[in-house]
Design a protein around this nucleic acid. Structure first.
Lengths: 106, 106
DNA sequence: TACACTAGGTTACGAATTGTAAGTTAAAGA
DNA sequence: TCTTTAACTTACAATTCGTAACCTAGTGTA
């Protein structure tokens, strides 16, 4: 009848983090600022989706986009303080995966 | 050229956790065993997807499905030890969301 | 005997999201 | 003028998701 409601901020966090690629993208950027093309190669993600996700995370102020006016132009993406604050979440997932996840070949 | 490869176990963890609904589902079950219909109401998820995700998490041994032979039959889902081990991940997300997430109305 | 009720699903199908591959843009070097 | 490069866009096909209707036992009711 009366459903215990989930905190909207927690829900929003999950919405961001569970959006395909986002967590991996943040994980990748924990190593420091990186260029569009570097991220693309590392994650093996399509440019269409990568651009979309980078914009989403920029809007959420999890990362910052910097234009470096070389030629051709280079764009660097880096985590904001809010973004780096996600490190403990990623650490917890890493811990869990090393404790419990097994890889099965099929 | 040579991309620093991401640990396959970590990748698998992300694959499971980032699959839409899964994290919320696990969060919900941290409160203890729950029936199919209860989960459905709480999360406001469609039965098609709920069934699919419960099967996935059961396959991953994150949760356990128990048939209670009443009439009509009742099914209870509960986290396994592997499932409960995800609590720190959820706690970390909760912490981050309370520290950093703001809700914007649009 | 027939009918309805209930929990936990399945099924069909349209809508939304994702991946793929090709094209765009602007500056500079050949 | 033509080519190259980084960082995107665009068009479109393949997946995945949400919605609503339907299915299946095992009762209880008429």
């Amino acid at each position: 009848m009366d459903q215990k409601k989930i905190c909207p901020r927690f829900e929003k966090a999950l919405k961001i983090l569970n959006h395909r690629w986002n967590t991996l993208l943040i994980y990748q950027l924990l190593d420091g600022p990186q260029r569009y093309s570097t991220i693309k190669k590392q994650l093996n993600i399509s440019s269409r989706v990568l651009t979309e996700r980078l914009k989403e995370l920029e809007t959420e102020e999890i990362l910052l986009r910097t234009v470096i006016p070389t030629t051709p132009v280079v764009i660097e993406y880096e985590l904001t303080e809010k973004g780096y604050a996600l490190a403990p979440v990623l650490k917890a997932i890493e811990q869990w995966s090393s404790d419990w996840v097994t890889i099965t070949k099929d």
